[in-house]
Design a protein around this nucleic acid. Sequence first.
RNA 1: GCCAGCGUAGCUCAGCCGGUAGAGCAGCUGAUUUGUAAUCAGCGGGUCGGGGGUUCGAAUCCCUUCGCUGGCUCCA
Length: 640
Amino acid sequence: MEKLIKIKVEESVFFIKAGAPLSELLRQFPQETKPILFRSNGQLLDLNHPADQERELSLIFPGDPQALEVLRHSAAHLLAHAVTDLFPGIQVGIGPAVENGFYYDFLRPTPFTPEDLEAIEKRMKEIVSLDQPIKRLVVNKEEAISIFQERGQELKLELIQEKGGSEVSLYQQGDFIDFCLGPHLPSTRYIQHFKLLSVSGAYWKGNEKGPQLQRIYGTAFFSQKELEDYLNFLEEAKKRDHRLLGQELELYSTSEDLGGGLVIWHPKGAIIRHEIETFWKEEHLKDGYEFIYSPHIAKLDLWKKSGHTEFYEAMFPPLEFEGFKYQLKPMNCPFHIVAYKSRQRSYRELPLRWAELGTVYRYERSGVLHGLLRVRGFTQDDAHIFCRGEQLEEEIKRVINLAIKLFQAFGFEDYRIYLATRPEKYVGRLEDWDKAEMALEEALKHTGLSYQVDKGEGVFYGPKIDIKIKDAIGRLWQCTTVQLDFNLAERFDLSYVGEDGSFHRPYMIHRALLGSMERFFGVLIEHYKGSFPLWLAPVQMIILPIADRHEAYAKKIQEVFKAQGLRVQVDYSREKVNKKIRQAELQKIPLMAIVGDKEVSNDSLSLRIHGRGDLGQVSLKDLLPRVKELVENKSLQINL
RNA sequence: GCCAGCGUAGCUCAGCCGGUAGAGCAGCUGAUUUGUAAUCAGCGGGUCGGGGGUUCGAAUCCCUUCGCUGGCUCCA
């Protein structure tokens, strides 16, 4: 007598032979119902998962976010399948689904070429059309080992030895077998919409000393449309690349002569930075901050005392002169601490909020440098807050509100907030951590914004809050970090005299809101695709005289606008207006004013807005105050 | 740092199997005086990233060095 197992599927109850594939139950459902996976108790299962225990199943269809991961994981197997077909003897590593697709690592003496990728993709499509079932096998460990030994898959053997239990699950499609927990789609036919994207180096198990593997990246979706949308997104991201726009719009440059990761801000970039900094300073003053300026180097001993020489890896080697060693600063904190310690502090002074646009230097490994986003010399919009325990929550709240206020002015409306709590290894007292974590969380709750708790992800010296901002095409960028520090306060023996007349240790908060000027500028460029809002635009308006007899009038208008602090230029080139307009559009100048005989005669100009075209004649009297208002209000849109 | 790819005029790029460099744009000069995304003509500009080697001859082949780009946490 065979044992029957009770399975509930979407409110209907079935009995099925033990060990039979769950997919048999689907026969009871209408033909057009074609799930790709089951979900049982939150966990995804293969359609052909054997009936092993009483379960409640729900049907998962394409479009489910978890199902997308499965699709991509199956696509990774498909990739490895194709690669092992085409390159016999190749060693396969691991192949998971990742955020935007999947990858698979291979060990092979010669690198893959772009032609190889094409051939692999072609082979993948062939396997898809073969509609090979993807089967789950459960075998004991010894059997699994012999299977991969036979196939000469040393890397897989290593993984099985390390991770496999007494029973091991394998997935097979055609001749290809992989050591894998699953789940997977029922057959290769389900993987229709995919593309291989790139190949790169990666270390076996992420270990730099281990063998270097070749990683093939790809992406996969349930529909062709989603795939195309994603590929278009990649194209769009390329067009927004701040390194290209930075050059085209003459915002900044880097040079071999300087060395990697060192940025020169050109006048057009510098004026934007000036606007950012001015705004930043005003808002900080309003919010009760005071400013600090500190030097770029300090005696090495300061960094020994702070612990940076011991724990901080990204320091440049020290300089030595007059018998002392000096260190280029990787952080601003010790300077602010020295200022704090310049005299005895009273509880009456706290909180102290000390801000500095502090330029720091970090020895980032050459391979990780990237445009403005990862550099070696950069200016943090840093501040340190020294406060008492009971002020903590209020201070954190203020910091978050200030960060949001700044971001909104720059047109970022969508944020992701993360609270990272005490890691396993930490310094400081447990009760301080608990108190601090509670203060951080309370502050977050008060802001009314949603946040995510990353348990155990804090830094060793304190819990922190990170904020990522979402740009115009949905990418997230880490900018803000707010960190409690129990370490430096201790190391420098910070204190204040309390109401009770005895010494107390202040709480110290590090915070950077925009992150760094360089990074934030890079993000801004990509967010706006180089078309900055009026208040930030390096040139806010350009006047285009039609013929040279209109130049005097153009100059007159320019002077009127300049007198109001607006950045206005005149195009004196002896070109046709068409050409001048084209140049101005390419330079992404927000406002263009065409002036010819008509305009001279009635004291007006013909206005054109970048990307929007001709708006017709406007009188100078009307336009000037309106433009000024848009700039002063930091309007993100030009509504005239 | 490691793996891979790339490095030719200010920019974007062409130069096949070695025969000592070319286009477009930009720049300069001149003509044109122009009405909403490129007027025409002429000129100048490169020791082909640096160094070394092979060769009668190297941008092209080899070695080396520098720089840039992509990637190097995400459990089978």
